[in-house]
Simulated scan of single mutants.
Amino acid sequence: MSAVNHNPEPSELAYVPFVSVDNMMRNVRAIGVEKALMGIAEYIEEDFLRWESFDKKPRIPAHAPQGVIELMPTSDGKTFGFKYVNGHPENIRDGLQTVTGFGVLSDLATGYPVLLTEMTILTALRTAANSALAAKYLAPKGSTTMAIIGNGAQSDFQCLAFKEMLGITEIRAYDIDHSASLRLARNLADSGLNVTICKTPEDAIEGAQIVTTVTADKKYATILTDNMVGSGIHINAIGGDCPGKTELHKDILLRSDIFVEYPEQTRIEGELQQLPEDHPVTELWQVFAGQVAGRTSDDQITLFDSVGFAIEDFAALRYVHDLLPKTGHFEKLDLLADPDDPRDLYGMVLRSSPENGNQAA
């Protein structure tokens, strides 16, 4: 569990631990990407196993033609966390990230934040960790080959997570931008994974037990058609994560056992947009808890309709909060007002500032 101090000294509350992008990279390098992925997956599983303890709601979106900005809040009754995240597929044309984010973890007892962190890198890590965690329960046992269709910023993390948590050794990569596949192969050259760059999606899924789709375009797309999907595979569908954005042909869904994080959100944003509201799904936390079976037969098609959920971000924030005392890679951010008398905020504004020599009027 997170080591949030619920009885801190007042002086401790004046500054908030802040993890910049630079310090997040330092933290990840300090322990290794694979270890970070494993650690976040453990925290996600812990929090899914106490699912009923959390406040749950679909994320709060602000849509524009170019993309979406979302807030993803949740609380376990002691700690509150939220993530701000955007999704703007066309940003890549201007040299910008398609997804950026930051997050906050706060103590409910005081209302004070205990962590402010970048969540662009952290979201990539938690998404990959969650994918591999779900596949541990849903993918065919002994899987060695994964196809990954869409070789953008998320793909490297996905490949490493599946290697570390499921023992994947072969990656079959496809992207409409060949340079993206070349970049992925180059980044993974020393990872222990054998990367084959494929010319078509059909080529990529040949011989794969797991298929990950992680494309970026905000549109109803058909990355996988029904005739491409044989029995017995596991599909990790990540790219369909907002209204008006899908990757799979509807008939694939009708043939699959579908697993989701939070149905109320996935029916709005995931591949489930294509199906009636009453189409049966299984909640992932029930599988983790052993209440419902995951994979039950060799010819079963399992589909993780992944859109990302606030509890996963909460777990990732907890992980970083607990990691910082071990690595020390963070700054103390002067974010919170700290008057000598809590009732005299105005007096604090007027008092002299040793830093700049200003005197109260």
Rank of each mutant, 00 (worst) to 15 (best):
E9M: 14
P17C: 10
V19W: 01
V21Y: 11
I31V: 14
V33L: 15
K35C: 06
K35W: 05
A36K: 06
Y43A: 15
I44C: 13
E45Q: 09
L49A: 04
W51S: 00
S53Q: 03
F54M: 03
I60Y: 10
I60G: 04
P65E: 05
P65D: 06
I69H: 09
E70A: 14
P73S: 00
T74K: 09
D76V: 13
D76Q: 02
K78D: 06
G87F: 12
I92F: 08
Q97I: 03
L105S: 03
S106Y: 05
P113Q: 11
V114M: 11
L125I: 14
R126P: 05
T127Q: 01
A129C: 10
S131H: 00
S131P: 10
S131K: 08
A139C: 08
I148Y: 00
I148G: 03
C159H: 12
A161Q: 02
F162L: 02
R172N: 12
A173K: 06
I176A: 11
S179A: 12
L184N: 02
S191Q: 08
L193E: 02
T196R: 15
C198T: 11
I205Q: 02
I210R: 12
V211D: 14
A216S: 12
K218C: 10
Y220N: 14
L224P: 00
D226N: 14
H234M: 09
I235A: 07
A237T: 06
G239F: 06
G240D: 01
K245E: 02
T246Y: 09
I258S: 07
I268Q: 15
E271Q: 11
Q273M: 03
Q273V: 05
L275M: 13
V281G: 04
E283I: 00
A289I: 01
V292D: 06
A293L: 08
R295N: 05
T296Q: 13
D298N: 12
T302S: 05
V307D: 05
A315P: 03
L317H: 05
Y319C: 04
Y319M: 02
L324D: 02
P325H: 07
K326Q: 15
H329V: 06
K332E: 09
D334H: 06
D340W: 13
P342I: 02
R351P: 01
E355W: 13
